[in-house]
Nucleic acid binder design. Sequence first.
DNA 1: ATGCCGGGCGAAGCCCGA
Length: 261
Amino acid sequence: MKIASFNVNSIKARLTNLTDWLKEATPDIVCLQELKCLDEAFPRSEIEDLGYNVATHGQKTYNGVAILSKLPLEDVTRGLPGDDGDDHARYIEAVVSANGTALRVASIYLPNGNPVGTDKFEYKLRWMDRLIDQTAKLLSYEEPLALAGDYNVIPTADDVHDPAAWANDALFRPETRAKFRELVNLGLTDAFRACHTEAHRYTFWDYQAGAWAKDNGIRIDHILLSPQAADLLTGSDIDRNVRGREKPSDHVPIWAELDFG
DNA sequence: ATGCCGGGCGAAGCCCGA
């Protein structure tokens, strides 16, 4: 069972890039972020034609998340609990039956939070509190769970090309990283880090300033696993080459392989 | 690089991303 996450930075602008990658990588489940379109504008038939079931939580212009799955999607829920006044489409959750075992998956687009010192940063930290609460609830089920998405969090200095340059950025601030540790310390496993210890492996390169050519990247897209899912982990990697193609997103896909037998 | 690129919106130039 190959589970992937990909921030596409507009599903409409990225459709060919996405379908090319789907055909070659053949993931079973894909969590998408930054659709930037309403549910009715999602290119559903183009994705379904590749053998995927589709659940979307879209929004006009900004945000928007989805889950694609070759297995049927059950119990789909949209929106992160904890704040009825939050209208950003940043969270969708569903359950698939993997060889008789229930696997819960969430696609996460955590707020950017810049600039620090504004209500945007406070929104990010409060959103992380809500994600911690939701994750604690899901972990209490003691079942396989994968939380995959764009966390907009650089976990450590090994995950950024120039830590000093990012010191005051919302993605790398101590408060942000502390919240991320609080989340992981509930008992989650960073799938990529469980399989790779080397520094400077990135999932995002800015469109500007030749960031891709210079490998000035950051690792901010993560797949976090419950203990019951981590026990099944057999591999994880970043599909870095996708960044070098025509009309790329500024993020690339990441994936984790779980062996359900 | 508090915006160099790229996308949305909407039809020029601003908002947003990380």
